[in-house]
Amino acid sequence: MQPKPEPDGVRLRDYERNATARLTKAGVDSPRLCAQLLAAHVLGLDRLHCILEAERELDPAAMDRLDALTARRATGEPLARILGRKEFFSRDFLVTPATLIPRPETELLVETALELLPAQTPLYFADLGAGSGCIGVTLALERPAWRGLLLEINAEALAVAQANARRLDAAQRLACLRADLRQAPLAACSCDLLVSNPPYIAECERPLVMDEVVRFEPHTALFSPDHGLAHLQAAVAQAARALKVGGLLLLEHGAGQGTAVRGLLAAATVFAHVATRRDLAGLERCTLAWKK
């Protein structure tokens, strides 16, 4: 008996092999994983089913879309931007060109808040410069007794934060407001927690930033004047006014800014127990202080 001829179309395993080679040549990190995730995205499958269905034949429309998305990744466009989502604290958050892509190191802000503040006690927090809303939405989901305000100056980014709050079922405990974190409309002594991942990269550091970050992420969410400290100083000033006595301030900052941020907090004269925590890479990443 003659063996059955193989289908003429491209199989999923063929796409994965060719895309992996293409992305490897382009210098993309984890090229095989990228190829699998792009396939999962286009085919509406999870990664495991893509592996299990390696012999699946791809129709021309799917191949055209996969080729287009692979080409985008090969030019350096971040995978999260192509997929339109990024995992943060084990949840998928929508991202767009108006928002930063959530980073694993930012989870340190959330972890620190959850560790230091009472879980069952109702409290009110503000997230200054909320972007996609990943910090504030996660706090609301992890602590059902907490309520929060997400402040974001970019209208398109604010819409993404609102969408994430709705789709993750946190909208009923969050308010979203378009506002500049440097002029945040927060009442005096109104917050138990103020958290912020503001712009903190100095303009002189632009050549040191990864090319795909500079090319594809919003510069207004990355760069800050005064050696990268202008927005951090504004957040400190907002916290000095808006936090209740005993309230907690959490700031993400650059790996080399810990000393400067501690100096800003000392100069404000209303904070005590200032400390800086390190991320998983051992870099100073999050500074906390309590209002005295």
Rank of each mutant, 00 (worst) to 15 (best):
A230E: 11
T112L: 05
I201E: 01
P199W: 00
R17K: 09
K244W: 10
R215A: 06
T99C: 05
D14T: 06
E212K: 15
E105R: 00
G76N: 13
A119L: 11
R178D: 03
D226A: 05
R143V: 04
V209L: 11
Y124F: 10
E105A: 00
R143M: 02
A74P: 15
R17V: 09
A188W: 15
R47V: 14
I51H: 11
G246L: 14
K291Y: 03
G258S: 12
H41D: 09
A157N: 07
L66C: 08
L116H: 11
T121E: 13
A39H: 06
R22N: 07
A98V: 13
A54L: 14
A170N: 05
S90V: 10
G136Y: 05
I51E: 15
S30Y: 13
L232N: 01
E77M: 13
E142C: 02
L23P: 09
G9F: 12
M210W: 08
A267Q: 14
R91F: 02
Q183E: 13
C189M: 13
C189Y: 10
Q257A: 01
S90H: 07
K291T: 07
I101N: 03
A237C: 07
D14E: 13
C191E: 12
G133V: 09
A68E: 14
E205L: 05
R166Q: 13
G84D: 08
A202H: 03
R47P: 14
L123F: 05
A145M: 09
L151Y: 02
T20Q: 08
P207T: 07
E252D: 02
G282I: 15
S132T: 08
C50P: 12
V195W: 00
S90G: 04
L45S: 03
R73E: 15
R166E: 14
G44R: 12
C286S: 02
L66Q: 13
L288P: 06
P102A: 03
L151F: 04
D46M: 06
A268I: 14
E77T: 12
N154A: 05
T106H: 00
G9L: 12
P3K: 04
